[in-house]
Every structure is written in C-alpha cells, then in structure tokens.
Design a protein around this nucleic acid. Sequence first.
RNA 1: GCCGGGGUGGCGGAAUAGGUAGACGCGCUGGAUUCAGGAUCCAGUGGAGAUACCUCCGUGCGGGUUCAAGUCCCGCCCCCGGCACCA
Length: 861
Amino acid sequence: MKKYDFSTIEKKWQELWEKHQVFEAKTDPSKPKYYVLEMFPYPSGRIHMGHVRNYTLGDILARVKRMKGYNVLHPMGWDAFGLPAENAALKHGVHPAKWTYDNIAYMKNQLKKLGFSYDWRRELATCDPGYYKFEQRFFIEMYEKGLAYRKTSLVNWCSSCHTVLANEQVEDGGCWRCGTEVTYKEMEGWFLRITAYAEELLKELDELEKYWPERVIVMQRNWIGKSEGAEIKFFLPEIGEDLIVYTTRPDTLYGATFISLSSEHPLAQRLAEKKGLSQALAEFIDKVRKERREIETGMAEKEGLFLESYAIHPLTGEKLPVYVANFVLMEYGTGAIMCVPAHDQRDFEFAKKYNLPIKIVIQPEGINLNPEDLEEAYEKPGIMVNSGPFTGLPSIEGKSKITAYLEEKGVGRKKITYRLRDWGVSRQRYWGCPIPMVYCDKCGIVPEKLENLPVVLPTDVQIDFTGRSPLPLLSDFVNTTCPKCGGPAKRETDTFDTFMESSWYFARFACPDYPEPFNPEDIHYWLPVDQYIGGIEHAILHLLYARFFTKVLRDLGYFKINEPFKNLLTQGMVIKETYKCPVHGWVYPEEVSPEGRCLKTGCGQEIIVGKFEKMSKSKCNVVDPDVMIKKYGADTVRLFISFAAPPEKDLEWSDHGIEGAYRFLKRLYHLVLEYTEALKEIEYSSEEFKNLDPKLVPLRKKLHKTVKKVSEDFEKRLRFNTGIAAIMEFLNLFQDYLKEIDLNDMMHKKLIKECLKKVVLLISPVCPHLAEELWQELGKKTFISCERFPDYEEAWLVDETYMLVVQVNGKVRDQVEVSVEATPEELEAMIKERQKVKKYLEGKQIKNVVFVPKKLINFVV
RNA sequence: GCCGGGGUGGCGGAAUAGGUAGACGCGCUGGAUUCAGGAUCCAGUGGAGAUACCUCCGUGCGGGUUCAAGUCCCGCCCCCGGCACCA
C-alpha cells in the first residue's frame, strides 16, 4: 500500500498552484466578488499557531467561496513598521530594514508551506516607500481639511520604548507592548480629529451589529462613550468671568453645594493668582501628576485645594466654594464640574472629607433621605425636592425641563459629550513612516509638497545604544527647504503610530501597484471587505481607526463605502496546558517525567499542571507550526486547527488531537486509493441513480444530506468544526456500507465514485493538497481548487421513512420506523399495540396525544 | 460597581425552529493482528442499579411556563472578557 507521503504531495501542489497562477484575482465586474481578508501579521520572525489558525480560517472560506463561483480576492501583506525591529537592531546590530525583510522572507515561506490560497502578486509591506507615500499624502489632505492638527498635551509616555502612546495603547497602566509603567509628560505632537466622526462611528455600529460580534460592538460603544447632559455657567465674581461646567445630571442642579476644577484648568490658575495661592496650586498640580496612575485607576483618595473663591449658582444666586480636585479630568467635558454630594458618590466622598454641605434634591419614592444620616450618595431617579419651581417633578423629566430653563435664561445649554479623544499619532521612533511636515521660521508649519512625496525614511543610519530615534541627529534629513518660501527649514522627526498603516491597507490590496493611491475601478469593485478575520485584541484600536480612516477617505473622495469590513469574525486564541516546577518555574513538557516530576538536573520536584494559557515562550507552552508541518503535514495542521473548536472560541492545542486528524487523513487517503484503479473510467449522471439498489439508497441520501450540511457550515455559518464532523460521520457510514458493495455491479461502482468524488471536494477547502492529489487519482485533470463545490439533490434529502420517537408523559419509551405517509390516526392505533408502549398505557386514561410530524408522538395519560 | 459572553460525559465540543441530550474527535476498556512494541482494524464507553430484557437519575443551583425545557421566564451561584472617579 502506498504511504500517505504528505511532504511530497504538498510540495507538488504548491508548485503547481504557483506555476498556473491558480489564485490570482482579477477585477471583473461581470462576476460577483468576495473579498476575504485576515489581519496581516507583524513580521516578528516566525509565524505562530495564532497566525496559523487565523489564516486557515480565512483560507477555508476563500476556497469555499471560490468553489461557489465567486471572484475571490484573498491577499496577504506585512505590517512592517514597528518597535521590535529597532530592538532587534539594538540587540543584534542588524539594521531594522534588513531584520524586517529577512523576517518577511522567512514567514512568507512558512505561509506558502501551509498552502494558503493568496494572490501573492498583491503582497505589500507597509515599510515600503511606495506604500507609505500615500499615507503621507492622506495626512497632508487631512491637515488641509483641519482633521490633523498639532497640540501640546499631557501624553502617555513609555520610558522603555522612548515614545508616546495613544490612550488605547495603555493597558492596566502599562505599555501595551512592553508592560512598562506609563508616565505622563507634556509634549507637542500631531493629532487626528477622530472625535469629529464620533457620532457617525457610533451610529453606524447599529448597522454593524448584525454582522459583527456583539462584544466588539459593545467595546466600541463604551470606548466612544457618548453622554447627554448640559453645560451650565457659574459666574466667578473674583475675576468677572463665567465658569462652564458639564453635567449629565442637570436635574440635581439645586443640590450643587460646591464647584471643582481640574488642577490643569486655566481658571484655576487665575483664581489662585488672585488669592496668592499660586505656589499652593503648583504643588497641588505636581502632586496630581505624580499620582495620576492611582487617580486614573480610582485608587487615590479624593483630595482638593480650596481656592478661597466662590461661584454664583445660576438659579439660586448662592455662593458656592470653588476647589481644585484631583479627580476632575481636564480632558473630559469642560474640566470643571458642579458638585452634588447628595447624588454623586465622588462628590459625596469629597464633601465628607472637607465638611461641605450636603443638600438633598431628589427623594426616592417611599423613603425620606436625610443629609445627616446619608451613608452614600443617592444616584438613582426620584422626585425632585428643594428645587424651586421644579419641586415635585420626577427627576427624569427635570433633566430636560431644567436644561430648557437654563437655555431660556442664557446660562446653560444642552450638550453631548464623548469619551473618545483625538488620536495622537506622533511617535518618537525611527522605524516608522515619516510625518511629512516641515517647520519654517518664516512660514511656520508647512506640509511637504505632494510631488515631493514620499518623504523617505533614511536607511543609512546607526541605531544608538540608548534606543532613541536617530532621526533628529541626521542633519541631511532634518535640514530641508521650506516648500512654501524655499528658505531653510527643518523636518518633523517624529514618525507615525503604526496603526496608521493598518488603517487603510485593506484598500491598497485592491490595486497594490497603481501609481495613485487607488484605482477607482478596482476599489469600487472589491471594497468593502466581505469577511474580515482576526484577533479580538484589535476590537477597539485597529478596528476603530480603520473605520475612521474609511470615513475620512470617503470624505476626501477616494471611497464610496462608509464601512471597511462588512462581516467580522474574531477568532479565539490558541492555548495550551502549562507546567510549573516549584523550583524552576515554567518548564517545557519534555522536562516533565511521566510521573509528573521535574527532570531538570537534581530537581525531582512535583510538577504543578497549570491552566491552559495563551501560547508564549515565557510559559514554555508554545508549539512551533514548522515542527507540526514537518511531522504531520500542512493538511493535518489545517484540519486539526479548524476542527478542534468553533472559530470564535479559544482552541486547546492537543498532541493527541492532531494525531487524530492525521489518522483521519491517512484513512481517507488509503480508502480512495483502494478504489481508484477500479473507478478510473467510471462516469455517472444523477438520473442513473433512480434505479439504485434499494439497500444503497440510504447511503446516497446520507451523501446528499452531508453535502448540504457542509455547504451551510462552511459557507454560511462559518462553523468549520461541525462541517468537518459531518464529513467524518459520512465516511464512517460509507465504510460500514463497503461490506454491501459489489464491485462487479456497475451501479455500485458509480455510487462509490460519486461518494469519493464528493467527499474529496468537500474536504478540499480544509485539506487542499491531499484533495488535489486524490482528485488526480480519481482520474481528473483539473485543479480541484478551481472546481465547483458539490451540489446536492433535493429529492435525495427526503426520506420515505423516519424514526418516530414515542413518548408517554414526555418520557421516551420506544422508537418505531414509520412511513412519512402514515396518518397520525394510523400511527396512534399501531403504536398503542406495541409491547413497550402498551405497558405504560395499560389501565390509564389517555388524556391527550401530541403528534409532531416527522419527529415524535407523545401520549399524555 | 457597570456592560457583555459563558457554565453540557474523563477531555475538546455537537444539539441551527421548544421535540430522542452527548454528533464528531480525543482518551479509556476489551478483542484481533504482531516475536514484541508501535501502527492498524473491530467492539464498548454519561452516571447508578440489574448485566437478559430493563429501570431510575442526568445539561451550574432553586423555582416556574409547557404534553415536552440544555433551549423560554423569574431568582441565585460560579467562570471568562471589556470598561471603570468620564461628572
């Protein structure tokens, strides 16, 4: 028997696919298109199992859609700018460009070995000036529309990466990449006005809700954080100016007993000066900055500084003391709040600490709150009290009534606020896209001329051991001429956040060689992406930025679409069991004895079998895709990874599990080969099966049901695990039927041929190399990758008989095979006489009989 | 605290429309083959009791609706993820 020689088979078909350009996509408006995209990888050096899973899921879908007659675009590229390249340069003395391109070459080879059906002609790397020059152009166009601007702000700073981080890149107070604690620094930098699109980004989520995972929608909604409230003016007599506060609870206005400002608030400074408190305020600001970490996480105790000033309540005329408070953020709302201790927990705590009055203005129904014995703020709705003309109103109504009243009197207005902040895109890094701006002493900030783009990142540089960007030191780069006046000027030396590149790459894939950013013919045909697949870790960052860019590019006239990704699938992580030794920490599986002891020299401690965790080098639980491909072949790896769990769930890597997948493919291979000689010349047409041997009819029916099931699971539900299970189930049944098969009978042979052909077609999106090989063995001259997905015949899906489940009082008591044509009356009469049923009915009165066609009959006694 | 998602055999997971819970795979048990191991093949495999038929229990816990609930409703517990002084 011929051995299943996967390595020869896989190499053979990979070469043939490439030679015959099988997966090249061409714009063709006469055909329906389907754009499958997986999140492109950062070229870190080697692909990991997470990539294998992501790209296998995408590849199965791309292959299914191709077989279903779609013109499929399935590209791959490299998110090639980023910090690790600089770190590698530092550590190994390799230039970031060389390191990056070497990694790309290696990883591309790995992807090819997995047999993914990419159109490699469209490959792009974001560090290529031919790519990023358009990004520079978009930025200049945004600048001209007022969507990009420069400002000084307090930024998140990672001292280890020597760069600024966006709010989205701070996780639990640490840098999202290296985990170093983030500090705050005042810096100037470029911002994109994503807040201008806040409302549209939020609103469009209602539509996306049908096609995107709910949790992603929820995360984005929270991130945008829309709130409706009011801005209210409080007059400051000391300086003769109005202070504007933002509140979502105008209904509690009469309960305001003091005012708090952010320490960064400009009016705080002015009031402090007036009262000779500048020194105290400066100290307070300093303290707040130092404690910002604790403040942001809600850990710091509330603290304030009384400015010895008062604000006039716009409706009562009362004098309210003005404080600066450490918990008031300058970046949100107006940086100033009215404080209602009775109905806001934060204000309550502050008031208690500084002995400020508490005034109740909302009473819950049936309870009478007293300021003296209040233990926490009452934040829920109720009936308004002590609220002048509004007393007696439900607080829900009071919100809009008070706001309207304020508007009428000119001391306030309705206001919508978003939590979303503008996107800071400046990074003090070398390995990134240069920001195409020039600083001229005479003309100020001037964008580079479009015809001078790209501003090329100089590659002839030495990476300094401090890890700082070499760009500011490169006089050839820095010194330039002003695009406006031609005089001497200096270049911007910051580079873009790398999320810029990934915000529009999906569109460039439609026309990667076009001399302009986009060829309208191509992008209007291919966009949007029909199915986007990637990790949940990008639920906010990347997906929100890409949505924002899409809207901007639409408004700049490039796109016609509003949203970049129609359907989104967020696949789970690949996780594996971990082992921990009490002495040595995490250990490799090879370092654990069969008795569960540590095998490190002289150790012998009992190993703690840990949780399944995301594969990582530090936890010693990684499985290298290369090793698996070598041992089992790409088809087995693809099969296991798409079978072991539904796509959106975490997948537990199992060494036994992959053995099972391998076993299945060997079985399939040998089964087909066993018959290929006898079947080579056999052809069949569906009409011929009308005279099929009755004992084989159930087999053909199962075949057609399986085709239907797999078709739905693979194409519509994206549940590859159940689709594959259905194929396995059919093959099990098929093998049972082999005893019945007579190879001298022509009809039998035709049926076997049909079964094998269809099974091979069904499995082909998952295991394409093996499928191509078996297709050839079955006498076919075409690529199975270019074949049509099998059809099923409706007539063969229906059964003449079925197993009727018999219940008595809802409990299963019997099963009978019955004809679909039998009437309920006939069935009832027949079943009552059956022994198994009879004993439950004897001596009982039948109260009701429930009959569910083709399913069950239930006697209620 | 708020917002999502989830809890099904020894394990990963099925059950798409309220209708046989446990498909498929792993593991395990027994058998065949083999000098032996591995590989392969066959049979069994939710639990308890009877081991011939069969009976009872069973989808996190407690109630409910229904002829019928893993699935719907109410209350609770636990796990995972996100957000969290955003006024």
